[in-house]
Simulated assay, not measured.
Amino acid sequence: MTDLRFHPCIVIPVFNHEHAIGAVVQRLLAHGVPLILVDDGSAAAGARTLDALAATHPSQVTLLRHARNQGKGGAVLTGCRHAHAQGYSHALQIDADGQHETDDVPRFLTQARTTPAEVVVGYPVYDASVPAVRFYARYATHVWVWINTLSLQIRDSMCGFRVYPLAPLVALAQRGALGQRMNFDTDVLVRLYWDGLRMANLPTKVGYPSDGVSHFQLWRDNVLISRMHARLFFGMLWRAPRLLARHWRAR
């Protein structure tokens, strides 16, 4: 029997990952789920690679394109809005650089099918390639997320491997600005939690980019992330009674 509540796709934001995206797409196609690639203003080499992938797999791959780079969050939202308009119920977000374990896609989608109203959030199990400074620096964001949700329900807000129910995500994006760059992954999870969504946390192996390309810009993105935490903190304060009541009801 077809589950009318569950019609998933995979959204991949891509920016100059021409050396990794082909292998990522090939591994994802094996799972039989439609792919939406969002070219976030890639240079010519990256754009050609994406054009070739879309032309080779026209029934499985949709290619959307930003004329200029808008950031990871902007690309994910473009893909998710398109998916929602096309009738998909859920979008699995995965990065283009090969760091995520594509063999985990069925496990994440099975969880999403089982709990379709929840966000399925990957928390990373790192291999030896993770830089120590990146590994330990994540804990500052973890603590702020726990403060800003008054909950431990979000185990890791920075892993870009997750499944969104599209209707609440698109509704959230319509109400106000979300982080458009590396601040997106954390910002959207906290705000979806505020909107009442529960989180299903799943472990997944994570390496560091197979193509050696990282778009994290130390000063710009740290400033954006710091501002995001400050905004979320003040947003949490007036929501605190409701968040605490939700916590106690759950207990």
Rank of each mutant, 00 (worst) to 15 (best):
V133Y: 08
V14P: 03
N222A: 15
K205Y: 00
G71P: 04
W238Q: 06
I21R: 01
T2I: 15
S59R: 10
P165G: 08
V11M: 09
S42M: 09
Q217A: 14
W248I: 10
D195M: 10
H84V: 11
D156R: 00
A171W: 03
D3R: 02
D103G: 13
F161H: 02
C9Q: 04
G176W: 12
F135N: 00
H66G: 02
L237Q: 02
V14D: 03
E118M: 07
L244T: 13
L109A: 03
R81G: 06
G74S: 14
L166W: 11
W238K: 04
S151Q: 03
T2K: 13
A112H: 05
G71R: 01
A67W: 09
Q99Y: 07
W194F: 06
P8N: 08
V38G: 04
A245P: 01
W248E: 13
G176I: 10
A128C: 13
A137T: 08
D185C: 03
R251T: 09
Q111T: 15
V130M: 11
R191H: 10
N16H: 06
H57F: 15
H17W: 10
V11L: 06
A67F: 07
D51C: 12
H66I: 09
A67M: 07
Q111D: 12
L166P: 12
G207E: 08
A132M: 08
P116L: 11
L109Q: 07
R246Y: 11
F15P: 02
V61I: 13
R246E: 14
S226M: 12
F184S: 02
W194L: 05
L77R: 01
V190P: 01
V143D: 09
H7S: 06
H100E: 11
I21Q: 00
K205E: 11
D39T: 10
R155H: 06
L150E: 07
W248V: 11
G22W: 05
Q180Y: 05
D195G: 15
D221M: 08
G32A: 04
G73Q: 05
H100N: 08
I10G: 03
L4I: 07
T110Y: 09
P209T: 09
Y139M: 05
L202T: 05
A117W: 04
A20C: 09
D127I: 14
L29K: 05
G71H: 00
D104S: 14
L224K: 11
R5E: 13
H57C: 08
R242G: 09
Q99V: 11
L224I: 06
D195H: 14
Q99H: 10
A91H: 07
G207A: 14
V24E: 02
G207N: 07
T204K: 00
H57W: 15
A167E: 15
V61R: 00
I21F: 06
G160E: 14
V133S: 10
L243C: 12
S151Y: 11
L77F: 00
G160A: 06
Q99K: 12
A30N: 01
P116G: 01
M182T: 00
R181E: 01
D95S: 14
S214C: 14
R68I: 12
W219T: 15
R162D: 10
P124A: 13
L192C: 01
M228L: 15
K72F: 06
H229T: 03
G179I: 04
G196P: 01
H31N: 02
A137L: 05
R155Q: 10
H19E: 12
